[in-house]
Lab assay of single mutants.
Amino acid sequence: MQRVNMIMAESPGLITICLLGYLLSAECTVFLDHENANKILNRPKRYNSGKLEEFVQGNLERECMEEKCSFEEAREVFENTERTTEFWKQYVDGDQCESNPCLNGGSCKDDINSYECWCPFGFEGKNCELDVTCNIKNGRCEQFCKNSADNKVVCSCTEGYRLAENQKSCEPAVPFPCGRVSVSQTSKLTRAETVFPDVDYVNSTEAETILDNITQSTQSFNDFTRVVGGEDAKPGQFPWQVVLNGKVDAFCGGSIVNEKWIVTAAHCVETGVKITVVAGEHNIEETEHTEQKRNVIRIIPHHNYNAAINKYNHDIALLELDEPLVLNSYVTPICIADKEYTNIFLKFGSGYVSGWGRVFHKGRSALVLQYLRVPLVDRATCLRSTKFTIYNNMFCAGFHEGGRDSCQGDSGGPHVTEVEGTSFLTGIISWGEECAMKGKYGIYTKVSRYVNWIKEKTKLT
């Protein structure tokens, strides 16, 4: 034993070699072989497995989906700052455009905790909710729209109204504003409101030439003092309507412009014939205590009207009353817009006519005020429907199939267009061939041609 100890002390290297040989010859039971080890760690190889990531292109799944990435790591994937920024906006807080917040056709661009709407022409605001041009839906104005110097929408209202708090709607500024039905039992019968379409306001006024200088022999019209197929109006439903009495009662109609003036057809009036105007009328054979009678003290036909040349060209006249009318729910003026808007309103496509005229061709006159909704007829169809001249200051309205029309005794009465609950004068009943005849239409004086003249002559002093 002493000898062994001496050998170990003198030859430590020998001992180490012996131990190493023993270990190498022993069977290893701690580690699995290569094949079995792979069965336990069965993990798919990654895209760049075996390579240094710093030297390969980034992978979106590896960089940002398996674990949260930084902007720089995302930049490695896209290799483009702009594309990385677009991805980053949604990656950080989701897609803010998912709810489609942009209105009126706006395009949404996502941002971090926010979004941006790219608005089409005519709109602005956070969600493109603000109209900035009158060309689109009248700028959301209830009545009139004008573009300011910086191309912003400025709404306005006709006389007797003021802008509401929203700067879009119009509200009454006087007790009985024009064009409004205020009798409670008839307010439910107000005709369907007309909503502004998209309009090209630059070209809204037709490029028409008034044929002022045409000389033409007097034409022989049949029954051209021209509501057939209409309905009984309720008291106060058309408070701007008046009836004219002269040699015979209810020979023509008219509309209240203001307390002192009536507008009617020029062919209705004769110099030297006494005319009485009755406002607030409903049943011409009954006294309903809503009527107001006034005498006409002055007749002003349009300066281009000449019955000797043509009885229905420039067929418009103004009547001055001896005493002002007292405005109330049964006696209310009709609204008159400017030339541009009167023309736009007419193009809405349908209007209402009213009167006490004959209820059928050569038949009896109506006792109760009649009204009828009539569609506008395109000019080409209008011209083809008659052998008589249709001037540019006239328009056609009615039904091709016949059966409904204005008729004798309705002449001078109103053709009105309702705009968001307020009625505007767009025409004056003038003439036609018979009444409600198939293929024939009622012919009306186009008020847009005469609004400046009306307003100039009827100013209240």
Rank of each mutant, 00 (worst) to 15 (best):
C382D: 01
I275W: 07
G398F: 03
C145G: 03
I262C: 04
N343G: 09
I136E: 12
F176P: 00
N306K: 10
K152F: 10
Y450K: 02
P197K: 11
T422P: 00
K459A: 08
K347D: 07
L327R: 06
L369F: 14
V377M: 06
Q370G: 08
F224A: 11
C435Y: 03
P301H: 08
K440F: 05
C69K: 00
E281C: 11
A337Q: 00
L189H: 13
A233Y: 08
C28N: 04
K51C: 04
D111Y: 10
T194P: 08
C268P: 00
K234Q: 08
D111P: 03
Y161D: 01
R358Q: 13
E270C: 07
E285Y: 08
C141V: 00
W356E: 02
P375R: 13
L325A: 00
I40R: 08
G351V: 01
W88Y: 09
L321N: 00
E401P: 14
F31D: 04
E67Y: 00
G160V: 01
W261I: 02
F196V: 14
L163S: 03
E129P: 04
S385G: 12
E82T: 11
K188L: 09
E142N: 05
N48I: 01
G236F: 05
L20E: 02
F360S: 15
K455C: 04
G229H: 07
L24C: 13
S49L: 05
K311E: 06
N5C: 14
C178Q: 02
I428M: 06
F144V: 02
N213T: 08
V296T: 04
L41D: 02
L372R: 11
G229N: 08
C407M: 06
Y371G: 13
T85H: 07
H303V: 06
T84Y: 02
I344L: 15
C134T: 03
V77E: 02
F87G: 03
W431A: 08
N166Y: 02
S255M: 04
L189F: 14
G398V: 04
P172S: 07
D338P: 12
Q241L: 15
E76W: 00
A380N: 10
N304H: 09
D111R: 10
V277E: 00
R358P: 08
C18R: 04
S365F: 07
S107T: 13
G403A: 15
R373L: 06
K347T: 09
L369A: 14
F221M: 10
C69Q: 00
V296R: 00
F71D: 02
Q143F: 04
R46Q: 01
V153S: 12
N59R: 02
E53F: 00
F424D: 01
V183R: 10
L367F: 11
E54Q: 02
Q167K: 05
C134G: 03
N304S: 14
R358H: 14
R294N: 02
T209C: 08
N304R: 11
Q57E: 00
V257S: 00
N113E: 13
N313P: 03
G421C: 03
Y450S: 02
S448E: 07
T417C: 04
E171Q: 11
S220K: 12
Y115P: 04
L346G: 03
P197Q: 13
F360C: 09
A380K: 11
P324I: 03
G351D: 01
F123P: 03
L24T: 10
T84P: 03
R298W: 03
Y391F: 12
I336L: 11
R404K: 01
E159G: 08
R191Y: 08
W453C: 00
G280K: 02
N80D: 15
N100C: 08
G106N: 03
E418N: 11
Q219M: 15
Y201H: 11
V202G: 10
V359L: 11
V56S: 08
A279N: 00
F224Q: 06
I284W: 09
Q219S: 05
G439W: 04
T264H: 01
T342G: 05
R3S: 12
Y441S: 03
L52F: 10
G230C: 12
N328E: 02
G230V: 15
G179H: 01
V353W: 03
E35R: 10
Y91P: 04
A397Y: 02
N393S: 15
E53Q: 00
V368W: 04
K247Y: 06
I443M: 09
N138C: 03
N5M: 13
C155S: 00
P301Q: 12
T386W: 06
S220P: 14
G412F: 07
P239Y: 01
C108A: 02
Q370T: 07
S385Y: 15
W261N: 00
A366Q: 14
T16R: 11
S448L: 02
D93Y: 10
V195G: 15
K168A: 10
R162F: 10
N38E: 14
H303I: 06
N213I: 07
G105T: 04
R62W: 01
V56K: 00
L189D: 15
V447T: 06
C97D: 03
N147G: 13
S220N: 12
Q237M: 09
N313Q: 13
A265Y: 01
T287R: 07
V331G: 00
V273D: 09
Y115W: 09
C102A: 02
Y352S: 09
I275T: 05
E420T: 09
I336S: 01
E73H: 01
N295A: 10
N36H: 12
Y341V: 05
R384W: 04
H282L: 12
H302I: 02
G94C: 05
I40Y: 09
I256F: 00
N138L: 07
M6C: 15
Y305D: 01
I316T: 00
V227G: 15
C170Y: 01
N48E: 02
T422L: 05
C170V: 01
V331S: 03
E66M: 05
S448C: 04
L20P: 02
S430W: 03
V273G: 11
N166C: 03
Y450G: 01
Q219T: 13
F144Y: 09
K68D: 06
K274P: 14
N213H: 07
N151K: 12
T461F: 09
H314F: 07
M8C: 14
Y161M: 04
Y444N: 02
I309A: 12
G402D: 10
G351C: 04
E433D: 15
G160Y: 03
I112L: 12
K260I: 04
S385C: 08
D232C: 10
I112A: 14
K440L: 04
T225K: 11
K89I: 08
G413Q: 07
R364K: 15
E320D: 00
L319M: 14
N42W: 07
L369P: 15
I336C: 02
S99W: 07
T389F: 14
V359E: 07
D200K: 11
P239R: 00
I40T: 02
R180F: 05
T264W: 01
N343M: 05
Q219L: 07
R449A: 15
E259Q: 07
P414A: 11
G230E: 11
I284Y: 08
D95S: 12
N147V: 11
K109E: 10
R449F: 15
D111A: 12
S365M: 11
G280I: 02
L130K: 12
V353S: 06
T290H: 12
M6K: 14
A265F: 02
A436F: 07
F424C: 00
